[in-house]
Design a protein around this nucleic acid. Structure first.
Ligand code: FES
Ligand code: FES
Lengths: 141, 141
DNA sequence: ATAAACCTGACTAAAATAGTCAAGTATCTT
DNA sequence: AAGATACTTGACTATTTTAGTCAGGTTTAT
């Protein structure tokens, strides 16, 4: 199981953005250069972040993106959810009434993966963008 | 991020096996039928489990596989590790002295994913095969 | 007017996943 | 000894996902 780049980039980009957010809109071009992420790929990612109301866009020259909420209120869960990179341990949803194998009953390990998903989401629910920015300042000092 | 079938199958198969382990070797054919997993795929998986000394094989008629340790001593970590399905949050290993972007310095989020990996591994380190079998008995009751 | 920046949708190469298939070898039962 | 059961190994493949690229827009500050 590997973590995807898309999710990682989304968080990286937002941490970068959050650091300059108070002053001016931040252009994707700048983020691209600072973080070494393809501009075109960033545009895909920010399109989703905007649709999920995590950032706001400012069009035209001197435009860019700004956070749509306070950094403290943006949790990792929200970010990963926005770019469709939430952790999915199982495909067999409750509403389907089917197990992972297509049978009517849940498989022997269903509960385990459900527990795991909860465990991971706890981690993501607690961490905010502000925490991450602060973390970086701390380590630099 | 999606959990792979291979890891899920490995755990399912071992829970199944652990339930009958005390009596006789369990054939992959039986596991395949009970759990609805392709026999050929199971063979790949058990080849790895055997090489990692999690199971022992008994060849010939009436053969099959048995656990190589007590169920209590087999942790989820061991199983997932054996089938190469450990969670990898980052590719940028310490020994490489390179960040995920190929640069010399770690990216803004490196620490975060490291923390996450630890958090997930804690979960896997605690759960044993015995726990899982017991869980299933409990729920059936 | 023009350049900076966002916006959109389609496209694609490469990798990973989830298997299948073929050809064995070992051992038990009869 | 013969046959059946079951493990063993390695190669092969279709599908899906990932990680982008590319081509064309539209908006707004200067
Ligand atoms: S039935 Fe839900 S994971 Fe198998
Ligand atoms: S440098 Fe390790 S995740 Fe980016």
């Amino acid at each position: 199981m590997k973590l995807s780049s898309k999710g990682r980039y989304a968080v990286m980009a937002l941490v970068d953005l959050a650091r300059f957010n108070e002053i001016n809109p931040v252009s994707l071009r700048d983020i691209s250069l600072r973080q070494g992420i393809s501009l075109d790929y960033l545009e895909q990612i920010f399109s989703k972040l905007r649709k999920n109301e995590i950032v706001q866009s400012v069009r035209g020259k001197q435009g860019g993106y700004i956070l749509n909420k306070k950094a403290r209120e943006i949790k990792l869960t929200n970010i990963l959810d926005a770019v469709d990179e939430k952790v999915k341990t199982v495909q067999c949803k409750k509403e389907l009434k089917k197990g992972c194998n297509g049978k009517a009953t849940k498989c022997l390990t269903h509960n385990l993966w459900d527990e795991l998903e909860t465990h991971i989401n706890n981690f993501f629910d607690k961490k905010s963008l502000e925490d991450l920015v602060q973390d970086n300042l701390d380590r630099r000092a």
